[in-house]
Design a binder for these strands. Structure first.
Lengths: 124, 124
DNA sequence: TATAGTGTATTAGTTTACTAGTACACTATA
DNA sequence: TATAGTGTACTAGTAAACTAATACACTATA
């Protein structure tokens, strides 16, 4: 797994797992890979993976059963809220940044549209 | 200055100065505050500020004159390109993230619009 | 010329993220 | 019951970011 060296690895692992959960790649109640397997999957250390999981546990997005494994919460509503939260965080971030670059609301929207159009040709 | 503890301080200082330059708060050819003054302004260490400046020097956005100070480049075109680069980086980032959250192009735009509308009432 | 204000370089020490290895408690199962 | 697979805890060490202090070269100016 490629990491952005500007951001802690544990944090990127957390974001990676959050994406898997909110997009349904990991279903509610589903068992996560073991910490050891996850460490191999994302090419990081067990302790680094564990740190990501510990935060997710405290946020009640996953549940831990000693000796069995870690499981995605069955609280579907909580997962939805997480999804909304992640979307809003992204919107807030890009809005603040582009506003700081002196772009108006309309300019932000039109820049986004032209960016999307420029991507269309790329087939990716 | 408030720092996001997920990102290196020198990097945030660099972004801060980039914003000042592309928005015209710091004009082309204008002298930057001294490294010592900048360190006070942003509440960081001289060496940390210097690290940010060193990268900006290598990117030719500022120029250094020993004994005099650091100056914003007079290359207006280069500043424009930097502005475009920063905008595009933000668009790329938010697009990738929201796509990974299973939002379509249309949904991204409509979410952005409703986010902007929700901000309207806040007068900020 | 003396002094203050510049950028720059160097050394040292602290903190944090990360890695590495080990050990232990619990669970399922052959 | 023995074994393998879990989560979890702990200690130790490394690397990078950051801070701190100092020194030096250059420039402007009183």
């Amino acid at each position: 797994m490629k990491f952005d060296d500007k951001v802690p690895i544990y944090y990127q692992i957390k974001e990676y797992l959050y994406h898997q959960i909110v997009t349904g790649t990991l279903q509610p109640g589903e068992k996560l890979p073991s910490v050891r397997q996850l460490a191999i999957d994302v090419t990081a250390n067990v302790n680094t993976v564990q740190r990501a999981l510990t935060e997710m546990l405290s946020e009640e997005i996953i549940e831990s059963q000693r000796g069995k494994g870690n499981f995605v919460t069955t609280d579907v509503e909580g997962i939805k809220q997480l999804h909304n939260k992640l979307v809003k965080e992204q919107l807030t971030l890009v809005y603040q940044q582009l506003h700081a670059l002196n772009l108006s609301d309309d300019e932000i929207l039109s820049e986004m549209k032209s960016y999307m159009e420029s991507r269309d040709g790329q087939h990716e």
